[in-house]
């Protein structure tokens, strides 16, 4: 392989600043892959990389107004649905875990060794319980701004399971607010 024909060789002789930026990017990408950290826009592309697990039931979380689901579940409406879908799922995770998610343990341990105030750090990077509890009010505010009916807003979690023919069977329904 003739190294003089490579792109890196060309950059070394004509644009070292760009070469340096590429090296920094690759360094960060390697660091984030090793530590499992992300630094936008140096993403870890590990979506769907962990083997999916078999569940006996699946959750369908939805925001409803007067019994009608506001998320359509259709891919083409992804942009309209995504804020409701992702924030509602996060709200359930936070409520389920009693306002705390078991994260940042190793980071906090490392920070404490360095003498940093990790409680203050955690307060900054994690929503407080008052914020989490005000989520239903925010949903109403957000939907009102979208010009949607905010009467009878409910957050529901349906637990469903698959039958042999591929249809869904409803097991339980839980109303969060």
């Amino acid at each position: 392989m003739d190294l003089r024909r490579t792109f890196f060789y060309e950059l070394y002789h004509s644009n070292r600043r760009l070469l340096l930026l590429i090296m920094i990017f690759l360094g960060w990408a390697a660091f984030s892959a090793w530590t499992k950290f992300e630094l936008t826009p140096v993403y870890n592309w590990n979506m769907f990389a962990v083997p999916a697990k078999e569940h006996s039931s699946y959750d369908v979380v939805t925001v409803e107004a007067n019994g009608k689901a506001l998320e359509t579940g259709q891919s083409w409406h992804y942009f309209s649905d995504m804020v409701l879908t992702h924030t509602a799922a996060e709200y359930l995770v936070l409520k389920d875990s009693n306002y705390r998610i078991p994260e940042y343990r190793s980071v906090k341990a490392a920070g404490r060794k360095l003498g940093l105030d990790m409680n203050r750090f955690e307060e900054k990077i994690h929503p407080g319980s008052a914020d989490i509890d005000s989520y239903p009010d925010w949903i109403r505010r957000y939907l009102a701004a979208r010009g949607q009916n905010t009467a009878g807003i409910r957050l529901r979690q349906y637990s469903v399971c698959y039958t042999d023919s591929g249809t869904l069977q409803l097991r339980t329904t839980k109303t969060w607010y």
């Binding site: 499992k36 992300e38 942009f79 924030t87 994260e103 914020d131 989520y135 925010w138």
Partner: peptide, 25 residues
């Protein structure tokens, strides 16, 4: 913008998730 997905259209959101993303931190 049409789907109300821009930051000023979020009506001062209350939930956020920092995860392990240094930019968010």
């Amino acid at each position: 913008a049409y789907c109300h997905d821009l930051v000023p259209q979020l009506e001062h959101p209350v939930l956020f998730r920092s995860g392990y993303n240094l930019s968010y931190w």
